[in-house]
Amino acid sequence: MRSDHPPLTTDPVGASLTGAHAGYALRRGRISRYDPEVSVFYAHPAELTEDDWADLAELAGTGATVGLRGRRTPLPDGWTVLRTFELVMYSGAGLVTRPDDEAVVLGPDDVDDMLDLVAAAQPGPFARRTVELGRYLGFRDDDGRLIAMAGERMRPPGWGEISAVATAPHARGKGLAQRLIRAVGAHIVQRGDLPFLHTSADNPARALYERLGFELVDEVDLEIVQVP
């Protein structure tokens, strides 16, 4: 990584929504979120005031679920923690990237197939318009079925998040995910940025990411809470 390259922020959602993805941002006070048709993520200060909680509730809506990253203030009355897990962030500055001529570019016409693959592989949140956030690549089998995909989601300055790394259960063990990670990374590097990614701390895929050269840079609690 060049000495003048922007460091990887610990608030990639906020940095994306004030930068490359500002056009997808919905804001109220100090709270921002992606358009819900595009992504589920919110940006918020670690220490939330009474006004922040009110703005968050207004943006999310009654009964909605919200992911809070590294919260340091108590939940107000009526809010409920549904789940907490450890989220880890990896820098891919050491990833050896490589284009892949056999990978196909995926776009809006492929979304139904992408959603079916996400349902089968469970890589994490993926909405109908997530494909708009960056370049998505995939592999199809001889019958035209989408069997693997990966793409780009958040875009903090100088970085691109590799996301939605998904392989159909029957197609695993063939190195498809590794090829797609390298290929998506190649596109990110080509424009002068560096790749990074998120995953849960208990994801077995961490071993693959580390073999590919990703380095752990942050660990944080992510809470899924319900708005009263």
Rank of each mutant, 00 (worst) to 15 (best):
E215R: 15
P169D: 08
S200C: 11
T167V: 15
F139L: 07
K174H: 14
V225I: 12
Y209T: 11
A205M: 12
A168L: 04
Q190P: 03
G185A: 11
V189M: 07
V225Q: 01
F139D: 00
A201Q: 08
E161D: 02
L222M: 15
A150Y: 02
K174M: 13
I188N: 00
I181V: 15
M154V: 05
P195W: 01
D221V: 10
V217M: 08
I147A: 06
G151M: 04
K174Y: 09
R179F: 14
D193T: 13
E223N: 10
E210G: 10
V217L: 07
L176R: 02
A168C: 01
A183S: 08
H187Y: 10
L146Q: 04
A148D: 02
A177S: 15
L194R: 06
A148E: 00
G160M: 00
L180P: 01
L194H: 08
A205H: 11
R179C: 14
H187G: 15
G160L: 04
L180T: 05
G151E: 00
T167S: 12
T167L: 08
D221M: 12
A201R: 07
N203E: 13
V189Q: 11
G213Y: 02
P195L: 04
S200K: 14
L146F: 07
G144F: 06
A171N: 07
E219K: 13
L212T: 10
P156F: 00
P157T: 08
R172N: 13
G144S: 12
F139E: 00
G158Q: 06
R182Q: 15
A148Y: 01
G173L: 07
V217E: 06
V225S: 01
G173N: 10
D202F: 09
R211I: 14
G175H: 09
L208M: 14
T167M: 10
H187D: 15
P156K: 06
T167D: 08
N203A: 12
G160E: 04
H187L: 10
F139N: 02
V184M: 06
S163F: 03
S163W: 01
A201L: 06
H170V: 06
T199G: 05
L146G: 00
D221Y: 12
R182Y: 11
G160K: 02
G160F: 03
H198I: 06
P156Q: 05
I181C: 02
R153I: 05
G144I: 11
P157F: 00
E210A: 12
V220K: 05
D143E: 13
T199Q: 03
R145H: 11
G213T: 07
D193E: 14
V220L: 10
W159V: 04
V189E: 10
T167Q: 01
A186K: 09
R172W: 08
P204K: 13
E219C: 06
I181N: 01
R211A: 14
R145K: 11
W159T: 05
E152Y: 07
R145C: 01
K174E: 14
W159A: 03
A186P: 14
L146A: 06
P204Q: 08
N203R: 12
D141E: 05
L180E: 01
A177M: 13
P156T: 10
I188W: 00
G175D: 12
T167G: 08
N203Q: 13
A205Y: 09
I188Q: 00
R140W: 03
Y209A: 08
V220G: 03
K174G: 13
P157M: 01
E219W: 00
